[in-house]
Design a protein around this nucleic acid. Structure first.
Length: 228
DNA sequence: ATATCGATTATCT
DNA sequence: GATAATCGATATG
């Protein structure tokens, strides 16, 4: 079984707990719908350390989840707060579906729906640690070379990670992340459960004091952090 | 190192 | 017509 990482340095970059077995990331199975059919706070906590995967033809992109935010039902900061609209319909639907929105005229943000059909809730992906497909991510981001210093610029931030994975509303909104046929999914690669720290959310005005941002504190790909 | 600002458009009032 | 779950560039200490 071949190791699919681009460089040895990649996986070892930030001291993530070593895996016992090399992983063929493209073969990892999607997390089941029941995983997402829970409170977004619980889903957020459990998503840290999981792997986001994209299959693009023969290529596979993989990156570890290191920062997310929960958006609850009846949450003033959530897009669903003012009621169901065409844009936010996915949040009100069944759990485990990709919700993509376009923001500031420039960027896409990638979320997934939580809680049962009829109840709005979601999780926003804010930062990933790249594992596989570094060159492809760099190209998608418009960066020539992903050297050590620039690696954080690939997937550290919600707009950045969406761009690195080629995630757009037209392509991915409404996609079932739990389907084995999906080209976008999330999996458990067997790595150890990371430490989790909870902070307030970024870039919002309403309910800005609520502790609903979940990060892996020692990970350098968490957004809004200087190089160490 | 932190602050401020412009880009650019879908969505909602 | 205003706003936005952001980013990158530029300015300033």
């Amino acid at each position: 079984m071949k190791r699919e990482t681009d460089t040895a340095e990649t996986v070892a970059s930030v001291g993530w707990p070593a895996r016992s077995m090399p992983t063929d990331f493209g073969k990892l199975l999607p997390l089941p719908r029941a995983f997402y059919d829970r409170d977004p706070r619980r889903v957020s906590r459990d998503l840290l350390g999981k792997v986001l995967l994209r299959r693009d033809g023969r290529k596979v992109l993989a990156a570890r989840v290191v920062e997310v935010e929960a958006y609850l039902s009846n949450d003033p900061a959530a897009h669903s707060f003012a009621g169901r609209t065409d844009r936010n319909a996915v949040l009100w639907g069944p759990p485990g579906i990709a919700y993509i929105y376009f923001i500031y005229g420039n960027h896409y943000c990638f979320n997934l729906s939580c809680l049962p059909d009829g109840v709005a809730g979601g999780v926003l992906f804010r930062a990933l640690e790249p594992l596989v497909g570094i060159e492809e991510m760099a190209r998608a981001r418009g960066l020539v070379h992903a050297d050590g210093a620039d690696l954080r610029r690939l997937t550290s931030g919600p707009g950045r990670l969406a761009e690195a994975f080629g995630i757009t509303r037209a392509r991915d909104n409404g996609k079932d992340l739990t389907s084995a046929a999906s080209d976008l999914w999330i999996a458990d690669d067997g790595s150890r459960r990371p430490r989790v720290r909870v902070t307030t959310r970024i870039g919002i005005n309403k309910a800005a004091d609520k502790p609903l941002r979940y990060i892996v504190p020692e990970n350098r790909f968490v957004s809004g952090r200087k190089a160490e």
